[in-house]
Amino acid sequence: MSASARAKVVVEDLRAWFAAPGRPASEATSALSGVSMRFAENEVTALIGPSGSGKSTLLRCINRMHEVTRGAGVGGSVRLDGVDVYGAKVDPVEVRRRIGLVFQRPNPLPMLSVRENVLAGFRLAGEPVPQAEELVESMLRRVALWDEVKDRLDRPGTSLSGGQQQRLCIARCLALRPEVMLMDEPCSALDPVATARIEELLNELRSKITIVVVTHNLQQAARVADSTAFLHQGELIEHEPTSVVFTNPRDPRTENYITGRFGRTTGS
């Protein structure tokens, strides 16, 4: 994160866990143990780390999607523009409107058309969409999907290819004009061509919106992210500008991970 950038999201001592249904929190499995970090405004932050390191959980804690899972609990604070999203008076629904989430698997709503999928956030919330056609076109253009789907806007969203579906999901998220967009391995189900499209899109959105992207693809993190955070076993190991993390990491665990030696020479 560049030193001058304002922090859009500040996470402090964030703890997250999963308890089996009906069991007390003391017997829960911990997913995050006291993570504190800042996400700079209008920058791309990549979260990297081995499976089970808590990247996705951290992402889902930021827009209060973690608590949707049965038995999931959270402690600590997440502040969006200085306001704790876990505050007593804060409505999680409102938080999720301001902080959008793009999932690992493309998930257009199956009973809706391509057009309706773009407008889903408004329509399903019962809100009128003034100039809906213009919004659909501008959002689909933004994700470079318009030319491919302009003749089949009334076909089901699920009739598109995987890469197109993922871009449709990003368009659906962007249509709500979120301040922060969280992306949970958005390219892991896509081929290299579709992946390149999404990365182009990230580059384009950079400086307009705050983006946090979880990825297992280190080259991708190096290509798209301004800063990169390495998580391991529910802890934040380091969070530095991407160039620093990939060329001169502070912690040996980070170095082991990015050089692919993780678990072989030094283990955890």
């Binding site: 629904v93 999720r96 409107r97 959008g100 999932f103 709503l109 999901c169 998220c173």
Partner: peptide, 13 residues
């Protein structure tokens, strides 16, 4: 579950 989460993630009640 993905469908449910997709909708919740859009900020739907």
């Amino acid at each position: 579950e993905g469908l449910r989460e997709a909708a919740l993630g859009l900020g739907l009640a």
